[in-house]
Design a protein around this nucleic acid. Sequence first.
DNA 1: CGATGAAGGTCGACATTGTCGACCGACGCA
DNA 2: TGCGTCGGTCGACAATGTCGACCTTCATCG
Lengths: 254, 254
Amino acid sequence: MPGPIQSLERAAAILRLLAGGERRLGLSDVASSLGLAKGTAHGILRTLQQEGFVEQEPVSGKYQLGAELLRLGNSYLDVHELRARALVWTDDLARSSGEAAYLGVLHQDGVLIVHHVFRPDDSRQALEVGAMHPLHSTALGKVLSAFDPVAHNEVAEHERAALTARTVTGAAELEAVLDLTRARGWAADLEETWEGVASVAAPVYDRRRMPVGAVGITGAVERVCDESGIQARLVAAVRDCARAVSRDLGAARF
Amino acid sequence: MPGPIQSLERAAAILRLLAGGERRLGLSDVASSLGLAKGTAHGILRTLQQEGFVEQEPVSGKYQLGAELLRLGNSYLDVHELRARALVWTDDLARSSGEAAYLGVLHQDGVLIVHHVFRPDDSRQALEVGAMHPLHSTALGKVLSAFDPVAHNEVAEHERAALTARTVTGAAELEAVLDLTRARGWAADLEETWEGVASVAAPVYDRRRMPVGAVGITGAVERVCDESGIQARLVAAVRDCARAVSRDLGAARF
DNA sequence: CGATGAAGGTCGACATTGTCGACCGACGCA
DNA sequence: TGCGTCGGTCGACAATGTCGACCTTCATCG
C-alpha cells in the first residue's frame, strides 16, 4: 500500500485540533501543537481558509473551523442511506414513546448521532446531530459494542471514563453487560451517562445482516422507567423501530 | 503570496464533488471529472478515507462523504459565536411568533443556515441546519445582500433562478428591493422561494457594526401575512430579536 | 465460453511541490 | 525604547506527490 499524502494528513490533524481544542488557535499554537514549522502550518491554513474549511478572525489573526465543513457535513446526511430510511420510523418512535429518538452509527471510538427527533411535547431541546456519545455507557453505544466487532474492539481498547456513579467501567462487568445485550437484543443505560437520564436502544442491520447502527430513545429516568427498569412498552417500541428500519434496508425477516 | 497547496485544493474539490453530485462516485468518475490521473485521485481518496472524510462502499468500491465531516461541522457550530449568542433569542422568537426561526450567515453565494428552531406547535419538520438558501429570493438572503457588500457582489454576479412565479430575477428590480430593505431595516419573502411560504428577516451586527448574519422566521403565507403583507407584529418580533442578538455581540445601542 | 472493456488499484521514475528555518514588520508590554 | 511574541514571507533543497503504464477482477457480450 503506497503512503498516504502527508499534507492531507496534516491538514486533517489541524482541523481536528481546531475542532477539539479551544475556541480559536493562533498560527504558532497550531504549528507547535503538531510539531510543524510555522511556514508549513501557515501554508496549510491558508489553503484551508481559501477553501472555506477554516476561517480567520481578521483582528487577532486566530483561526477557527469554517462554514464549508457544516455544509459538507449536511451533505453527508443527505447521502446517508441508513438515515434516510430511518427518518420516518424514528419519527413514529418518538411519537409513540413520547421521548426523544436517536439514530447513531459507530465512528472512531464513539457513537456519532446522525438523526435526532425531539421529544414531542416539549421544546427547548438542543439538537445533537453530529455529536459523539461514548460507547461504553450509552444504550446506543452498548448495542454497537455488542453487535459490531469493530465497535467491540474500540470499547475494549479505550479508557472507559466513569461519567456517573453508575457507569460500568470494569472490562469484565462490561463484557457481561454486552453478553446480556446480545442475548436479549437490546441495551439500556440507567443513569450511566447522565444523572437522571435513561435510554434504551436496539441494533439496525443491513441487507447482509451486518449491524450498521442503532436506534434508541432517551428521557428522564422517572418517565422511562418503572420499578423493574425500563418500561416494557418502550423496549418493545424501540425494538419494533429497529426491526422496521432493518427491513427497509433489505435485511431478511426476523 | 505563496501558492496554495495543490493536493489540498484537489482534496477539497473531491469533497465538493462528492457533496454536490450524485450519491456515490467511482474512482474513475472522480478522476475524469477533475482531470486527474487515476493514481493521483486514488492517493487523495485513500488518505481522505483514512482520515474519515470519505467512506468507501466495500462492494462496488464507490466513494461517498464520511462521518468525520459531520462531526467537524458540528464542532463548527459549537465554536460559532454568533450562533451561541443567538440560541436563546431565536428560541424566544420562535415561541413568541409561533413560527420556525432561522439564523443564517453568508457562505459563498448563498445563505448557510447555522441555527433553526422548529415551529413550536407542530412536529414533523426537517432540520435545516447546514443547508444553503438562495441570496436573491429569501428574506435572510435579501437582508445579507442589502447590508453586506460581499453578499451584494455575490448576488449581483450570480444567475438568479426563478424559483416561483413571484421570484425577482431582474437586476434593477432586485436593486430596488435591496434599497427598500436598507431603508426600512428588514426584508420579506412572499412566496418568492417556495409556493405558499413567506418569511421575514433582519440583520445582526457585531461590535464594529458590521453585518455578520440575519435572523428570520418562515411560515405558511396564510399564517404569516395579513391583507397588507407580513403582519406588523411579526416584523417587530424579528427586528427585536435581531437587535437583541446584536447587542449580545457587543454592537452599540440602536 | 472466451474475448472484451471498464472497473479499482498498484508501481516506480521523475520533477514538481511542499517543507523547513531564517528572516521581516507589527503589535503589546514594561 | 527595547524586548518578546505574534502572523506572515522568502528562497533553497529534497522529500513529496504526481503521472501514466500496468495488473487483477468482474460483468458484459458476441
